[in-house]
Amino acid sequence: MATILYARVSTAEQTLDHQRTQAEAAGFRFDHVLSDHGVSGVSTRLAERPEGRRLFDLLRSGDTLVVRWINRLGRNYDDITETIREFMRRGVIIRTVISNLTFDGATKDPMQRAVRDALIAFMAASAQAEAEATKEAQRAGIEHAKANGEYRGRKPSFNRKQLATVQNLIGQSVSVIARESGLSRQTVYRIQSDPVAAAAALTTWESSPG
């Protein structure tokens, strides 16, 4: 029986190390650690993510899946609830680092099952509502900034030196470039796909006050 930590890192401010350290501090120990980087929990279902697909392949009856919180599995109500039900049907135990919650499909008592399912539904709904509220706040902020001529787009997650490193290492593997530049693979891919836009974004932020 294996214990697997799954982490989803969707922004530059989040890190796998933080999620793993927090889980280990809570007493968890892992046989495998899987993580998806730069992936939205709203638009990309768990089964559609590279390591999410691997998670479905790895988990067996008796295994334990550990996540920092349910929103690491996703930010979509249907995806979260269907995923947890599928894992429980397989005999997988799901545990959260925050609040130390346990979801076990082996529960037979109808009242315990009702409470468990209600909690799952509430947490899934909260994850989606939080994502939608954040998106709406961002949209409102962008519209306000545009109206005042202050909008510069999202701040680049790389600096001029890192951009130059990526450009100078064209032809090398993405893993090598990521290691040499100190950037994530996702950021390297984004720069490589449109280097002109990447340079323009840096120029916009460098030339604007604040």
Score class of each variant (00 low, 15 high):
R95T: 09
S35V: 10
R190W: 06
G141I: 11
N148W: 04
L73I: 15
G141R: 13
G149N: 07
H18D: 07
P209I: 05
D117Q: 08
I84F: 01
E86Q: 14
E82L: 11
S61P: 03
K146P: 10
G27H: 14
A12T: 12
V176G: 00
H144R: 13
Y151K: 01
P209N: 01
S175F: 10
V42K: 07
M111C: 00
Q14T: 10
Y151G: 09
V166E: 03
I4A: 09
N76H: 15
A7G: 02
Q192N: 12
R29S: 15
T3H: 12
K108R: 07
I94L: 15
A200M: 03
I84L: 09
Q128G: 05
I120E: 02
A199V: 02
L202F: 05
D109R: 12
V115Q: 11
G171C: 08
T44E: 12
D57K: 12
S126V: 12
K146Q: 15
R75S: 03
N100I: 01
L183A: 06
V9R: 01
D36M: 13
T102H: 10
R49T: 11
A199P: 07
I98R: 13
G91D: 15
R8D: 04
N100R: 15
E206A: 05
I4C: 14
S157Y: 05
Q167L: 15
E132T: 13
Y77F: 06
V196G: 01
L169V: 06
R90G: 10
A26R: 02
Q192T: 12
R152V: 01
S40G: 11
H18E: 07
I70M: 15
Q167D: 01
T102V: 15
A137E: 03
D79E: 11
Q128A: 07
D194V: 06
L183Q: 03
I80H: 12
A178V: 05
H37P: 02
V176K: 09
I80C: 14
A2E: 12
Q138W: 06
G52K: 04
R139A: 06
D57F: 05
T83D: 08
R185G: 02
G62D: 10
K155Y: 02
K108G: 00
E130F: 10
G210W: 00
R85A: 14
Q19M: 07
V196F: 12
V42D: 08
V176N: 05
Q186I: 00
R72S: 02
H144A: 08
A125C: 11
F56P: 04
T187D: 00
P195A: 09
A137T: 10
A106R: 15
N148T: 10
L119N: 12
G62W: 02
L16K: 10
A26H: 07
A147W: 04
D104A: 06
N159V: 04
V115H: 07
A140M: 01
T165L: 08
R72P: 05
N71A: 15
S181E: 03
K161P: 00
K161C: 00
L202K: 05
R29Y: 11
V42E: 14
T83V: 09
T204D: 05
A200G: 02
E143Y: 06
E82T: 10
P195G: 08
M88L: 08
R8S: 02
R190G: 02
F122R: 01
H144P: 00
R113G: 08
K108P: 01
L34P: 04
